[in-house]
Design a protein around this nucleic acid. Structure first.
Lengths: 211, 211
DNA sequence: TAGATTGTTAATCGATTAACAATC
DNA sequence: TAGATTGTTAATCGATTAACAATC
């Protein structure tokens, strides 16, 4: 728990993973030190913003010198909580859920995927990435045993309200939500990160039609 | 081409699809009129913000009465450009690309998916949603014929730089980018909407570890 | 020491919220 | 007409950028 944790704005938080990716690339390319000015140029930001952002978490640079790439990378790794794995489950192993399981490297994002749930008879019993898909009737028992903190929701909007309530009763504290059900509106006490792919594409459609 | 098009901020644009979804639901539920106050309550926004946002595009309400749901829905449909389909192609029919094709309702988002490209020998020739996967060698010929304006990138970072350049030379003007290649940085002249699922999950990991 | 670059404060810019006159 | 609610201007709030003293 760093010193200035409470006041970090979401604008800053959303930039952290991108910093982390750029630092990783610099590290990979053997770059030892970098100034805020040069990183800003590479990332298309202002040097001021980078220094402001980093100083939310501590003083990682050296005056007159810049930042040590390795050290800054490690700090971001720690700040983002990548050193701990959040026990998690995924609900809805259809097209999207299945693709996420195969496509995402969960453990490199601080997440440990421990269970997969779906009620489709054709899916129950199947195995993905070494995890057997279960029906949602086993949810409570699984949670009592494994205590997942995060649920990844790849289910239709209609199925969400009931499942979300059950999950919260099981102790789930955060949702990575691909459904169109507005969790935050109904359960303000939990953390919700929405991924609305349709909204993203519609916003792009709007921009295309403007230009 | 509405009157005040030029000055719409991205903050407003990103809220439009959500307004559209809520209006759709209201319409489905037979709600005829709604005030900014009530819509604000349902969406978890302020009435002020809703009125400000909508007035970027015109005067859709009636003083003393509110907004007609049907009419406002139609306006949003038009504003978002859903009445025209942008010809598009998808590159990379692996897990994620495949899932997107099956999962997304492109035409309801103003997008017409006309071609799918991938260089994996096991995928070339296969058919998804009535479209045959082609190798990228056929890209230029296809574009000369079909003039896609939008490319959906589900390819690895390494493959992106060359393909993006080729696509832009083929007249592609916009990218829905799932790769970690930073298109906007290298090609500021095109529209880019990034979907960085990993960044989204890492931001959530950060928040989980704070609470 | 001189040059460079940070950490941090101050200034600017943009987005959100509040207030209210216009009007249905 | 009176009540309600918009459209719009003004006030506030927050985020970004600029400036500069501190210091390596």
């Amino acid at each position: 728990m760093a010193s200035k944790d409470t006041s970090i704005s979401m604008s800053v938080v959303r930039r952290l993973p991108r910093y982390y990716r750029f630092l990783y690339d610099l590290k990979e390319n053997g770059v030892v030190r970098i100034s805020s000015r040069e990183l800003a140029e590479r990332m298309g930001l202002t040097a001021s913003q980078i220094r402001q952002d980093l100083n939310c978490f501590g003083e990682f640079g050296q005056q007159g010198y810049g930042y040590l790439v390795d050290q800054l990378y490690d700090e971001l790794y720690r700040i983002l909580g990548m050193d701990k794995l959040t026990p998690s489950i995924l609900l809805g192993a259809g097209n999207l859920g299945h693709a996420l399981i195969n496509h995402m490297n969960f453990s490199s994002k601080g997440v440990s995927l421990d269970g997969i749930f779906d009620d489709a008879p054709t899916l129950i019993g199947q195995e993905i990435h070494g995890i057997t898909i279960q029906g949602t009737s086993g949810l409570e028992a699984f949670c009592a045993q494994n205590h997942p903190q995060l649920a990844i929701l790849c289910i239709p909007k209609e199925a969400a309200p009931e499942l979300v309530t059950r999950l919260i009763n099981c102790g789930v504290k955060a949702f990575w939500n691909y459904s169109h059900y507005d969790i935050a509106l109904h359960h303000p006490e939990v953390l919700v990160e929405n991924v609305h792919l349709g909204d993203s594409l519609m916003a792009l459609s709007y921009l295309i039609n403007q230009s």
